[in-house]
Design a protein around this nucleic acid. Sequence first.
DNA 1: CCGATATTTGACCATTCGGTCAAAGGGACG
DNA 2: CGTCCCTTTGACCGAATGGTCAAATATCGG
Lengths: 203, 203
Amino acid sequence: MAKDEAPTRIQRRNRERILSAGLDVFSAEGFRGATLDGIAAAANLSKPNLLYYFPSKEAIYRALLDDLLQTWLDPLRALDPAGAPLEEMLAYVRRKLILARDYPRESRLFAGEILRGAPHLRDVLSTDLKALVDDRADVIAGWMEAGRLAQADPHHLIFSIWALTQHYADFDVQVRAVLGPGHDPWVEAEAEILRHFTRVLAP
Amino acid sequence: MAKDEAPTRIQRRNRERILSAGLDVFSAEGFRGATLDGIAAAANLSKPNLLYYFPSKEAIYRALLDDLLQTWLDPLRALDPAGAPLEEMLAYVRRKLILARDYPRESRLFAGEILRGAPHLRDVLSTDLKALVDDRADVIAGWMEAGRLAQADPHHLIFSIWALTQHYADFDVQVRAVLGPGHDPWVEAEAEILRHFTRVLAP
DNA sequence: CCGATATTTGACCATTCGGTCAAAGGGACG
DNA sequence: CGTCCCTTTGACCGAATGGTCAAATATCGG
């Protein structure tokens, strides 16, 4: 179909539609639960038309995962070694929570992939992700040794930030069911999580 | 098939096998990803034989969820209002972590169900689960008001315990990939999480 | 050992699903 | 207008899947 270069207006529009529909369906149903018919319907395209733009169901899924990883790790990358330790960490927590709040579909897509054993990105986790986390863990460890943050294992500290922030996206139904009506989980979560990590991290 | 009463030895054995195989397969592949053939193979039974003991794929899944909920909330139920607040809370954290460590399949089954919007147990969440959490949240709030625990929103405190403990079961691949070889995630997690919540909760 | 009942299975079915293909429709440009 | 290429689609295919059924086999009490 398309050349290697210069995607047409229609191509860009339809690819975008497909990816958005794919994100909806994959994040709601998982890879196995999603169907091409479902994605096609959500994108207002016919099934063969989908496969004109992407060679397979898996190709759509992979494209989504690739896009996802780019932005998903930005908050951690943005951690500034030259900044004030506690403020930097709390800013990271806040960025991660905002990301989970504004992109819950992406969060659930990622969670589903990891839950199933990360068949599509096992490698990325143990290379790129590990390298980034190791690097930032060193920064955090430096802050701790300098007495500017409370002592903890930096890797597990990062895990705890991931766990807490993504919980509100991935387990949204449970959170809402338990809180009951009249609560805004995200507003409460931001206040509580920041207080939480202030206590954990303040030296 | 079976009468209402007195399941035979064979019935008990095969039901048990099917549930165990179902737990394996459902927790690894999700409800949609699991197949009756897969479960049958894992249980060393023929597919029609599966359906002799359970009327449908969904029936197996529901049976697993029912069993699960029983034991999954025991740690929270065991929270003793008459105990020492900090010790009670840390004991709860420890119980929850042990449960995640020893029953990771159950944890992932539950996580998958919630991730997909809890289609099979939406009601239970907003009735039974909510009632239990509200009740325990009251106990915790009492402790906080008495100055025996640090101030926090009890509901979100419970969420944070769930999030942190289950993270190590549900995101196991990611945790291992990031830590790299030579680490025992569970050993490290127990130490870190207890230190973590000690800082969060100590008055 | 016999008969009744419980258990097991091979063969089969309808539906769903991912994917193919040839042909039709549209837009841009000379 | 005509032509070339991009886009769209109806019809179709093979494999997988949840589930059925009638027949075969094992088990057990008497």
